[in-house]
Design a protein around this nucleic acid. Structure first.
Lengths: 351, 351
DNA sequence: CCTAAATGTGAAACCGATTGCAAAAATGAA
DNA sequence: TTCATTTTTGCAATCGGTTTCACATTTAGG
């Protein structure tokens, strides 16, 4: 079945424009890059033709000649997690205004995929890489992976959120100490003294840090640390539900629970409600990430907002500045914000 | 501050390999592309050097020489919507095994962004485009946009889900008739006769189709259509909540509500529960999309599963086949599946 | 009016792969 | 051994831009 009418049109090139304008390709290039000096009349003529043919310079050719594509590779654990989706969109917007394109990859928690994605980035000759979650957040880094990332940092800037020891990465971190401070102070101000933590694996650096700070704050307020109030687990709904089931079996049930993220918090909340307790009157609940879920549940969930827009700008800004040879500090912090909602504030629950 | 030790290493090329192996670049290329006939000993030697230097062919150069990058551009309305996130991941996996890379863009519902993304895709010389949501799902297509897409379809295959009249796009659709059938039959089997629809805008083709089918089924079962049971609105939590508030004011309150998606269903559920009604004993609720939310809420939500893996495979498969000159039918359907959970089945609520 | 400095322009090299073509080498048959 | 094949191989062109460099043309200054 032939389709004569649907003939593929060859993409028009800088030479086509040059020929018709009666100038050289170099001149067209100068018009494109804007900065060089071209006689106004010629510039006009060329620009008119560019419009006329809807000419768009070939990014491949451009990338080939300056040995890098203007693409920033972003690797996240899983974009189906709203936390990463928020960050991705923030990065996309930031990259767009800097004239870069972003390439998203999901590592899906598999080291083999992570390695493969690195190769793919290499093939695409990306300008910089941003990585969040996955390997970079493990407390003990995988030697092979560190090696691969190191090789990458020799060629391009790599920006990570999370620790990746032994590499020359730039770090943009959420100030998780500060986040824990905000939550704990909020709860302690409300009179809570029996505060539990639910979910999170301690071999993940961000979760580990949260626990450290939690202990520190208890000490500052001269509140005894109770090991039975720290329930390790995963990062999903189930983890929260299971954690709460165990907490409800404690001799003294906690009066407040901080979950590792909003999904986990939801599990905690459902467990509480199933047992007939009220939130926040009997038990207050708070989460992390301030995803859409926080305002979808009942009561609305107090959560830590990660300032995605700012975060995205800093990630991409760091990458771009480094690519273009500017000075950027190796490590930067984003200050989180506490979003107080009905799950910790009884008087606000009449929403 | 100079960093002498962090000298950027030039990427090694096919020529470097060729020189050291004592062969021509063409031979290395043949080894790379595998298919040509190269003497085994030379092939060995070349392959060893490729390993040794961790050489990865430059995708830009490759793309330049065959005038297309092996990239599939995917444009979705907003990846923060779990529905699109699921599809994206499915497409990513499918593309990966076909040897393609996917480039994700969010139109965020702005026509101007959509147009700009199209230009960006053009510059990147992508092999194919997949579009979901946004303009392509409007019942009345925007003339400028159709023109732009048409121009694209002259050069590369465009696969859409949703109607985009007046273009030569390939269509991969969820069988939304079938989806409505499944939901309605399920509810009617359970004895429901007063079934309402919540959320969705009727200028969006998928929503419009759902309504058409809904009416048809009512007619088949000789159930009267009640206009007050169809509450138009958005696609978020709020829309569901507001819709239910209105439905609760009807003379005869519906005994079942079908929401336009899971978020909206959640709004409906919360409204019902706030008014002291029980789900599903007093009012049954069902949603669309079968996102993670469906099993996070209480009771778990009956929803339509879009078979993301299959869907992604078909989208990418169509794109790839078309790119490579194979035959694909212009329009294909994915059959959805009903996920029955506690929000419609009282006996299953003891989960 | 003549030179010096500033500006505008094109030819050609280059970026790193693929590929058609022809030469060279290996193979086989006579 | 020789000639006809078949298999391997390398040369050189191509893809579509950017950039350098040298030359041409203005413009300004004395």
């Amino acid at each position: 079945m032939d389709t004569p009418s649907v003939m593929k049109a060859r993409n028009i090139t800088i030479y086509d424009i040059a020929r018709e304008a009666g100038v050289s390709a170099a001149t067209v290039s100068r018009v494109l890059t804007n900065n060089a000096n071209v006689r106004p009349e010629k510039r006009q003529k060329v620009q008119a033709l560019i419009e006329k043919y809807n000419f768009k310079p070939n990014a491949l050719a451009k990338g080939l000649s300056d040995t890098r594509s203007k693409i920033i590779g972003i690797m996240v654990a899983d974009v189906r997690n709203p936390f990463y989706a928020e960050i991705f969109v923030a990065c996309e917007l930031a990259a767009e205004s800097a004239g870069y394109t972003v390439l998203l990859c999901n590592s899906l928690g598999e080291t083999s995929r992570e390695q493969k994605q690195l190769e793919l980035f290499h093939e695409q000759r990306i300008s910089a890489m941003i990585q969040l979650g996955g390997r970079v957040d493990d407390l003990v880094s995988d030697a092979d992976y560190v090696e691969a990332v190191n090789q990458l940092t020799n060629n391009i800037p790599v920006v990570v959120s999370g620790k990746l020891d032994g590499t020359l990465c730039y770090q943009v971190e959420i100030d998780s100490m500060k986040a824990m401070d905000l939550l704990m102070e909020h709860l302690i101000d409300l009179g809570h003294r029996r505060i539990a933590l639910a979910g999170g694996r301690l071999d993940v650096s961000s979760s580990f840090q949260k626990l450290q700070r939690y202990k520190q704050i208890l000490k500052n307020y001269r509140i005894d640390f109770r090991p039975e109030y720290v329930i390790e687990g995963g990062y999903d709904y189930q983890a929260g539900h299971e954690a709460m089931e165990r907490l409800l079996k404690c001799d003294e049930i906690p009066t407040a629970v901080i979950a590792i993220n909003d999904y986990t918090a939801l599990g905690v909340m459902n467990s509480i409600q199933e047992h007939g307790y009220r939130i926040p009157q009997d038990i207050a609940v708070a989460g992390y990430d301030n995803t859409q879920i926080a305002t979808l549940v009942h009561p609305h969930l107090t959560s830590i907002d990660y300032q995605y827009e700012t975060f995205g700008k800093m990630l991409v800004g760091t990458a771009v500045t480094a690519v273009e040879g500017g000075e950027v500090s190796r490590i930067q912090l984003v200050t989180p914000k506490l979003m107080i909602r009905a799950s910790t504030m009884p008087e606000e629950s009449a929403d």
